[in-house]
C-alpha cells in the first residue's frame, strides 16, 4: 500500500479509535486486495510503510464482497461498480479477504 495512504490510515485509527473505522478497498486482484487488508490489519508485509509492525486489526472489506454490497443502494452500486463484477474475479477476492479477516481482524 502507498506509504502516504498507510500514514493516513494510522492517523485516522488513532483519531477515531480503530473500532470505529472501516477500510474499503477496490483492488483489481485477490492478491492485491489481500495485501491491502493485511496491511491495515496486521501491518505492512513489505516492511516499507508507517504500518510496518503495527497491528491495527481494522475491519476491511473489498467493495464487491456480498455483505458490504448488501448495505449499498442497489442503483448506486450498479452505476458505479456493477460492470466491474463482470471484470474482477470476485470469488477469489472474497476468499482472500475473508482469510485475512479471520486471521487478523480485531473488530469482527
Amino acid at each position: 500500500m502507498d506509504l502516504e495512504n498507510q500514514k493516513r490510515v494510522k492517523e485516522f485509527a488513532e483519531q477515531y479509535g480503530p473500532e470505529n473505522v472501516v477500510v474499503l478497498v477496490g483492488a483489481a486482484e485477490g492478491e492485491a486486495a489481500g495485501l491491502a487488508a493485511e496491511t491495515v490489519e496486521n501491518g505492512d508485509p513489505t516492511f516499507a510503510g508507517p504500518l510496518t509492525g503495527v497491528q491495527l486489526g481494522l475491519l476491511c472489506y473489498h467493495v464487491c464482497e456480498p455483505e458490504i454490497k448488501a448495505e449499498f443502494d442497489a442503483n448506486v452500486y450498479e452505476e458505479n461498480v456493477g460492470m466491474m463484477e463482470m471484470v474482477l474475479d470476485v470469488d477469489d477476492i472474497c476468499e482472500e479477504m475473508s482469510d485475512i479477516r479471520s486471521n487478523y481482524c480485531k473488530y469482527l
Binding site: 483489481a28 486482484e29 492485491a32 460492470m83 466491474m84 471484470v87
Partner: peptide, 21 residues
C-alpha cells in the same frame, strides 16, 4: 506477479462487459 492483474485483459473485459450492457 505484482497483483495488478493483466491490465490489457481487464480493459478488454470492461469493453466487452459494457458491450453486453
Amino acid at each position: 506477479p505484482a497483483g495488478a492483474g493483466d491490465v490489457p485483459q481487464a480493459n478488454y473485459k470492461m469493453i466487452a462487459a459494457l458491450s453486453v450492457k
